[in-house]
């Protein structure tokens, strides 16, 4: 029934359009002018609309910036993230300034130079000086942007991880897991061929380093202590995305990737600033299958004492093996 109704509405709309078009053409014939010729009147209306709606677009942009500002991610909660934020503010300011200069010019020129049968355009072919200026200025500005960008990138990526807490983040369709290296601070060997329903990470149980490893479904970090996440994927490409820390890295089967960072704010602190519901969360950010939209793992940043308490409670692999036996 609804389908028939929809069809009917569409049909009626088309009939209306046909009739309206016919009427406007007939009117044109009566007035002895071509309806499709653009008149000075048209130029006036369209030029005016260019100005009004063009400026309306800018107002819409400003409205969004004010109205939705509170929805944006809070300030970075990591050392390198704060530097990224500085670069982001700089780049955003730059592009907004350019946007709010160039866009009004485009719409204003359209309005200001709307056509008129009496007028003639100004014959201007080129102007080397002007062209030189607007090639050289973007070049200089971009040199700045590139240097600033590369410095920030270098700091974020080339981190000395010798003192960092190592944590393995393991991913498969559609779940995240993590492995802490235990007291020896060395992750035991693993191999995808060893993966079974009981050994989900494919850990080499012969490897002595693996005995004290701890597999967890939630990652705890110590505030202001450097950490390096080592990523492993078992099936397809996933992407580990921790937006609050400005951390993202693809997890690729057959390839080990990593991201090193230092969290600077505890979860408790963030709850105070952002509301009680706040949690650090790891999302999947690379299309990976039907439940791609529903993969998350909680991250908790806390003090050393809280962290030690939590870690002590987690079972090691040898504990688990014992209980199984």
């Amino acid at each position: 029934m609804t389908n028939i109704l929809i069809a009917l509405v569409v049909l009626l709309a088309i009939v209306t359009l046909v009739q309206l078009t016919r009427v406007s053409e007939l009117l044109g014939e009566l007035k002895k002018q071509d309806v499709n010729e653009v008149t000075d009147e048209d130029n006036k209306t369209q030029g005016f609309l260019m100005l009004i709606i063009g400026m309306g677009f800018l107002v819409f942009v400003i409205w969004q910036m004010i109205e939705w500002n509170h929805l944006l991610l809070p300030e970075a909660a990591s050392v390198h993230g704060q530097e990224i934020d500085v670069l982001m503010r700089f780049s955003m300011t730059l592009i907004l300034v350019v946007f709010f200069i160039v866009t009004p010019m485009l719409f204003y020129f359209s309005y200001r130079y709307r056509g008129n049968k009496q007028n003639t355009a100004y014959f201007l072919v080129h102007n080397n000086k002007l062209e030189f200026i607007w090639t050289i200025i973007p070049t200089i500005v971009l040199t700045g942007v590139i240097i600033f960008g590369l410095k920030t990138w270098d700091k974020a990526m080339n981190v000395d991880t010798s003192d960092s807490q190592e944590i393995e983040v393991f991913v498969k369709q559609f779940q995240w897991l993590a492995r802490f290296p235990g007291e020896d601070n060395i992750l035991g060997k693993s191999n995808f061929q060893l993966i079974t329903p009981t050994n989900v990470l494919g850990i080499d149980e012969e490897d002595l380093n693996a005995e004290d490893d701890k597999i967890v479904r939630e990652v705890h970090l110590v505030v202001n202590e450097p950490v390096v996440l080592k990523f492993r994927s078992q099936d397809v490409i996933h992407s580990a995305f921790l937006p609050h820390f400005r951390v993202q890295m693809n997890c690729v089967p057959g390839l080990s990737t990593q991201f090193a960072f230092t969290p600077t704010k505890t979860t408790a602190q963030m709850k105070k600033e952002e509301g009680e519901d706040f949690e650090y969360v790891l999302l999947c950010n690379k299309i990976c299958g039907a439940a791609h939209y529903n993969m998350q793992m909680r991250f908790v940043v806390e003090t050393q004492e809280e962290y030690d308490l939590w870690l002590a409670k987690q079972k090691t692999i040898s504990d688990k093996l014992l209980t199984q036996k």
């Binding site: 130029n43 030029g47 160039v102 020129f109 062209e131």
Partner: peptide, 18 residues
């Protein structure tokens, strides 16, 4: 950027037919 500025310069003092 050069392309955009050139478009703007084309519209400048034009006699635009919409």
């Amino acid at each position: 950027a050069v392309k955009v500025f050139n478009y703007l310069a084309t519209l400048w003092r034009a006699n635009i037919r919409f």
